[in-house]
Structures are given as C-alpha cells and as structure tokens.
Amino acid sequence: SDEELKKRIEELVRRGNKDEARKLAENANSDEARKWWEKLEQL
C-alpha cells in the first residue's frame, strides 16, 4: 500500500539512505510515493 511504502521511504531517508529511498519511490510506480520522496528530500 502507499502508506506502507511512504513509511519505508521515510525510514530510509531518516537513516541517511537516500539513494535506496529514491529507488524505492521510483520503482513503486506510485505518484504518491514519488511526491512523498520529493518532499522528504527537501528536508
């Protein structure tokens, strides 16, 4: 689900694993996940 995906992306970003988070968001084929990633990346 998008919610689970967003949690995983956020967790990866928090751990400093941005590349992994980006790949996850891009491969998810989910606009919501991509937007979430872009938002987190700004922080």
Rank of each mutant, 00 (worst) to 15 (best):
Ser1Phe: 15
Ser1Asp: 12
Ser1His: 12
Ser1Trp: 15
Ser1Tyr: 14
Ser1Arg: 12
Ser1Lys: 12
Ser1Leu: 15
Ser1Met: 15
Asp2Gly: 08
Asp2Glu: 12
Asp2Tyr: 13
Asp2Leu: 15
Asp2Ser: 11
Asp2His: 11
Asp2Trp: 15
Asp2Arg: 08
Asp2Cys: 12
Glu3Trp: 07
Glu3Asp: 13
Glu3Leu: 12
Glu3Gln: 11
Glu3Asn: 10
Glu3Val: 11
Glu3Cys: 13
Glu3Met: 12
Glu4Arg: 07
Glu4Val: 10
Glu4Trp: 08
Glu4Phe: 07
Glu4His: 09
Glu4Leu: 11
Glu4Pro: 06
Leu5Trp: 12
Leu5Pro: 01
Leu5Tyr: 04
Leu5Ala: 02
Leu5Cys: 08
Leu5Phe: 07
Leu5Ile: 07
Leu5His: 03
Leu5Thr: 05
Leu5Ser: 02
Lys6His: 08
Lys6Ser: 05
Lys6Phe: 13
Lys6Ile: 15
Lys6Thr: 05
Lys6Trp: 11
Lys7Glu: 08
Lys7Asn: 09
Lys7Gln: 09
Lys7Arg: 13
Lys7Trp: 03
Lys7Phe: 06
Lys7Asp: 07
Lys7His: 07
Lys7Pro: 01
Arg8Gly: 02
Arg8Thr: 10
Arg8Cys: 12
Arg8Ile: 12
Arg8Trp: 09
Arg8Asp: 04
Arg8Ala: 10
Arg8Phe: 09
Arg8Gln: 11
Arg8Asn: 05
Arg8Glu: 06
Ile9His: 02
Ile9Ala: 01
Ile9Tyr: 02
Ile9Ser: 00
Ile9Asp: 01
Ile9Met: 11
Ile9Leu: 10
Ile9Lys: 01
Glu10Leu: 14
Glu10Val: 06
Glu10Gln: 06
Glu10Ile: 11
Glu10Tyr: 00
Glu10Pro: 02
Glu10Ser: 04
Glu10Met: 11
Glu10Gly: 07
Glu10Arg: 05
Glu11Tyr: 00
Glu11Thr: 01
Glu11Trp: 00
Glu11Met: 01
Glu11Val: 00
Glu11Asp: 13
Glu11Phe: 00
Glu11Gly: 06
Glu11Pro: 00
Glu11His: 05
Leu12Lys: 03
Leu12Val: 03
Leu12Asn: 03
Leu12Pro: 02
Leu12Tyr: 00
Leu12His: 05
Leu12Trp: 00
Leu12Glu: 05
Leu12Cys: 09
Leu12Arg: 03
Leu12Gly: 03
Leu12Phe: 00
Val13Thr: 02
Val13Gln: 03
Val13Leu: 14
Arg14Asn: 10
Arg14Pro: 02
Arg14Met: 09
Arg14Ala: 13
Arg14Phe: 00
Arg14His: 13
Arg14Asp: 07
Arg14Gly: 07
Arg14Thr: 09
Arg14Cys: 08
Arg15Leu: 14
Arg15Lys: 13
Arg15Trp: 03
Arg15Pro: 02
Arg15Thr: 14
Arg15Val: 13
Gly16Ser: 03
Gly16Asp: 03
Gly16Gln: 02
Gly16Met: 03
Gly16Trp: 00
Gly16Pro: 00
Gly16Phe: 00
Gly16Ile: 02
Gly16Asn: 03
Gly16Lys: 01
Asn17Met: 15
Asn17Lys: 14
Asn17Gln: 14
Asn17Asp: 13
Asn17Gly: 05
Asn17Arg: 14
Asn17Thr: 03
Asn17Phe: 08
Asn17Pro: 01
Lys18Cys: 13
Lys18Asp: 07
Lys18Thr: 14
Lys18Ser: 12
Lys18Ile: 15
Lys18Phe: 15
Lys18Leu: 15
Lys18His: 15
Lys18Met: 15
Lys18Pro: 10
Asp19Thr: 09
Asp19Arg: 06
Asp19Trp: 00
Asp19Phe: 00
Asp19Ile: 08
Asp19Gly: 07
Asp19His: 07
Asp19Tyr: 00
Asp19Asn: 08
Asp19Lys: 08
Glu20His: 04
Glu20Ile: 06
Glu20Arg: 04
Glu20Gln: 10
Glu20Trp: 00
Glu20Ala: 12
Glu20Pro: 02
Glu20Thr: 05
Glu20Asn: 03
Glu20Cys: 07
Glu20Asp: 08
Glu20Ser: 04
Glu20Phe: 03
Ala21His: 01
Ala21Cys: 05
Ala21Pro: 01
Ala21Gln: 02
Ala21Phe: 02
Ala21Ile: 04
Ala21Thr: 01
Ala21Met: 04
Ala21Arg: 01
Arg22Ser: 06
Arg22Asp: 03
Arg22Tyr: 03
Arg22Thr: 04
Arg22Lys: 12
Arg22Gly: 03
Arg22Ala: 06
Arg22Pro: 02
Arg22Cys: 08
Arg22Val: 05
Arg22Asn: 03
Lys23Ser: 10
Lys23Asn: 09
Lys23Ile: 11
Lys23Tyr: 03
Lys23Pro: 01
Lys23Gln: 12
Lys23Met: 13
Lys23His: 10
Lys23Asp: 07
Lys23Cys: 14
Lys23Phe: 05
Lys23Leu: 12
Lys23Arg: 13
Leu24Asn: 01
Leu24Ser: 03
Leu24Met: 08
Leu24Arg: 01
Leu24Glu: 03
Leu24Phe: 01
Leu24Lys: 03
Leu24Pro: 01
Leu24Asp: 01
Leu24Ile: 08
Ala25Asn: 02
Ala25Pro: 02
Ala25Gly: 04
Ala25Thr: 05
Ala25Lys: 01
Glu26Pro: 02
Glu26Leu: 03
Glu26Lys: 03
Glu26Val: 05
Glu26Ser: 04
Glu26His: 04
Glu26Ala: 03
Glu26Ile: 03
Glu26Tyr: 03
Glu26Thr: 04
Glu26Met: 05
Glu26Arg: 01
Asn27Gln: 14
Asn27His: 08
Asn27Phe: 07
Asn27Cys: 11
Asn27Pro: 02
Asn27Tyr: 06
Asn27Leu: 13
Asn27Asp: 13
Asn27Ile: 11
Asn27Ser: 14
Asn27Arg: 09
Asn27Glu: 14
Asn27Val: 09
Ala28Asp: 05
Ala28Leu: 15
Ala28Thr: 08
Ala28Val: 08
Ala28Phe: 15
Ala28Ser: 14
Ala28Ile: 15
Ala28Arg: 04
Ala28Asn: 05
Ala28Gln: 06
Ala28Met: 15
Ala28Pro: 03
Asn29Val: 09
Asn29Cys: 11
Asn29Asp: 13
Asn29Ala: 12
Asn29Gly: 13
Asn29Leu: 14
Asn29Ser: 12
Asn29Arg: 10
Ser30Gly: 07
Ser30Asp: 09
Ser30Trp: 09
Ser30Ala: 05
Ser30Phe: 08
Ser30Leu: 06
Ser30Cys: 08
Ser30Tyr: 06
Ser30Lys: 04
Ser30Asn: 10
Ser30Pro: 03
Asp31Glu: 11
Asp31Lys: 06
Asp31Phe: 02
Asp31Ala: 11
Asp31His: 05
Asp31Pro: 08
Asp31Ser: 09
Asp31Gly: 05
Asp31Met: 05
Asp31Val: 09
Asp31Ile: 09
Asp31Trp: 00
Glu32Asp: 11
Glu32Met: 10
Glu32Ala: 11
Glu32Pro: 05
Glu32Phe: 07
Glu32Gln: 08
Glu32Ser: 10
Glu32Arg: 05
Glu32His: 05
Glu32Asn: 07
Glu32Tyr: 06
Glu32Thr: 09
Glu32Trp: 09
Ala33Asp: 10
Ala33Tyr: 10
Ala33Cys: 11
Ala33Ser: 06
Ala33Lys: 05
Ala33Val: 15
Ala33Arg: 04
Ala33Phe: 15
Ala33Thr: 15
Ala33Ile: 15
Ala33Gly: 06
Arg34Thr: 11
Arg34Gly: 07
Arg34His: 10
Arg34Leu: 15
Arg34Ala: 06
Arg34Trp: 13
Arg34Met: 15
Arg34Tyr: 13
Arg34Ile: 15
Arg34Phe: 14
Lys35Ser: 12
Lys35His: 13
Lys35Phe: 05
Lys35Met: 08
Lys35Thr: 07
Lys35Pro: 02
Lys35Asp: 15
Lys35Tyr: 04
Trp36Leu: 10
Trp36Asp: 06
Trp36Gln: 06
Trp36Ile: 12
Trp36Gly: 04
Trp36Glu: 07
Trp36Arg: 03
Trp36Thr: 01
Trp36Ser: 04
Trp36Phe: 15
Trp37Gln: 06
Trp37Leu: 15
Trp37His: 02
Trp37Met: 07
Trp37Pro: 09
Trp37Ala: 03
Trp37Val: 12
Trp37Glu: 07
Glu38Val: 00
Glu38Ala: 00
Glu38Gly: 00
Glu38Pro: 04
Glu38Trp: 00
Glu38His: 00
Glu38Ile: 00
Glu38Asn: 00
Glu38Gln: 01
Glu38Leu: 00
Lys39Cys: 12
Lys39Glu: 15
Lys39Ala: 14
Lys39Ser: 13
Lys39Val: 13
Lys39Asp: 14
Lys39Met: 13
Lys39Arg: 09
Lys39Tyr: 15
Leu40Gly: 01
Leu40Lys: 00
Leu40Thr: 04
Leu40Pro: 00
Leu40Phe: 12
Leu40Arg: 00
Leu40His: 03
Leu40Tyr: 10
Leu40Cys: 09
Leu40Val: 07
Glu41Asn: 13
Glu41Cys: 11
Glu41Phe: 07
Glu41Val: 15
Glu41Pro: 01
Glu41Met: 15
Glu41Trp: 07
Glu41Ile: 15
Gln42Trp: 05
Gln42Asp: 07
Gln42Arg: 11
Gln42Thr: 09
Gln42Phe: 09
Gln42Ser: 12
Gln42Glu: 10
Leu43Pro: 06
Leu43Asp: 11
Leu43Asn: 08
Leu43Met: 13
Leu43Glu: 13
